[in-house]
Structure formats: C-alpha cells, structure tokens
Computed example of a mutant assay.
Amino acid sequence: MDQNTWSPIAKIYDPLMVGSIDTTDEEPHDHGIVRAMNSKYKPNKDVVGDPHKTIFVARLNPKTADETLHDEFSFFGEIKNLRLVRDIVTGISKCYAFVEYIDEKSAYRAQRDGNKMVIDGSEIFVDFELERNLKGWIPRRLGGGFGGNKESGQLRFGGKDRPFRPPITGNSDTRNNFTSDRSRFREESYNDKRNDKYSVSKRDKRDRSKDRSSRSREKRDRSRDRNKNKKHNHDRDRRRSRSQDK
C-alpha cells in the first residue's frame, strides 16, 4: 500500500475496506460486509438541511429528550433544526439524533468538543453527518457503518472513534511513517490547537460549566418557588375552610 494515500479515516466508503482493520483485506470477513457490497443504497432525497452544517449524535440515553439535547448543543452555536429519531410506531427514542446549525463553524465545534460528553448518564458519540458527506456511504442496517462490536464479530473501521491501523506489512520505516501520519492526523483533526480559529478556549469551557450550574440553580429556584406557592395556597384554603365551618 502506498503510504502517501493511506489515512486513518476513510475518504471514500468501501465496505470491504472498512471491514478491514488496516484496509489490506481482500475478502469480506462477515455476511454484513457482503450485504453492504451488494446493496445499491442511495441517500434519502427527502432529507433536508445542509449536510456540512449537520452533526450526528449517537449512543444517547433512551430517556434523553429533545429539550435536553437542544440545551446541551446550543452551547456550540445557534441551532436551526434538531431531530431526535424515534420509532415510527412506538415513539420510543432510537438513541440517535441529527442537529443542524446555522453556520458551519458551530457544527465543527460541536462534532469536535461535543464528542464523549455525558448526557443523562450516557457518554455520547458525535461526528459529522456521513450519509450525504461520504461518497459510497452504506448505513449499518445494510451491513455498513463504522459501528459494530467484538461480540458480534462485525467490527467496522475508518471512522472517528475506530480509525484504520497502519498495515503491518512492509519494512519498519514504512510502519513508522504510517504511525506518524496517524498521530499527526489525530492531532490536527481532534486536538485543541492554539491557532485553530474554531478552537474553544478554557475560558469558554468554564463559562459553559457556569451556565450549566446557573441553569441548575434556576431550576432548583423555580421548583422551590412552586413548592412555596403550593404550601401558601394550601394554608390559605385551610384557613378559608375553618372560617366557613365557624
């Protein structure tokens, strides 16, 4: 493999390639990959919005509501549209959502800094939408995607949370170059950089933490006020009742 063309992240979606830990497999190792290779999937034309301003949020807690997602992700910028995907029959959350922002900068920040946030006790996964951005994309239900687990034996590689590994073939210098490329790619793509015009400063993160604390205090204050009002109304009704009895 040419080290100049190798990348830890897939640039074009190829089922056989993403089914290989280092893109060197020549035959599919499970039936899902065969199904993806034979599928003629095309992106849904009914999907609206700008794919470059849309992020994909997965691994959500089934109890997480639309309002909670909106509160959490509005920190990164103004949200144009948010869709928490639900079962069409039961209405139960499928634990993933799509968030479209007004500008691309906000989407960039959200996919970078929102990844691995904890919402309702669940560590979430955030990336750009791939269906309309990655050529040849095949969803998981057709044997594609970048998901999977060791138990099922259907692992997929080349994604943000499971990048390709450098091929073990070739001499040591080649492997070292691959490893260096991978490290450099990760550093450029996912780490905070001082010169990145989209970077979120520590001050911004502290402000976000303060905002969360402020929202929590406001909720507690509102709850306390409601309880006081209930008690006041209850006491007033009791006094009226006693007066009428007399």
Rank of each mutant, 00 (worst) to 15 (best):
K230L: 14
R194L: 12
I119P: 05
D25H: 10
G170S: 07
H232C: 00
E100A: 00
R239W: 03
N195H: 06
I92K: 15
N133I: 04
I33N: 01
R240I: 00
K210Q: 12
I168V: 14
A65H: 10
Y108I: 07
D211S: 10
E67M: 09
S180I: 05
R59H: 12
P166V: 05
F178M: 03
H70G: 05
K219Y: 12
D181P: 03
G159I: 04
K45E: 11
M1R: 00
F125Q: 11
V200P: 01
L142M: 11
S39K: 07
I21H: 01
G153Y: 04
K230N: 12
K11M: 01
G145Q: 11
D66E: 14
F164A: 01
V99N: 00
M37F: 03
V89A: 13
K135V: 15
L60E: 04
I138T: 09
I21Q: 12
V99P: 01
T179H: 13
S180M: 07
V47I: 14
R242V: 00
K246H: 11
S209D: 12
G77N: 04
W6V: 07
D30N: 12
A107S: 06
N4T: 13
G145L: 10
V99K: 05
F178I: 03
D235R: 05
E78R: 11
S152W: 08
E78K: 11
K202H: 10
E72L: 05
K135F: 14
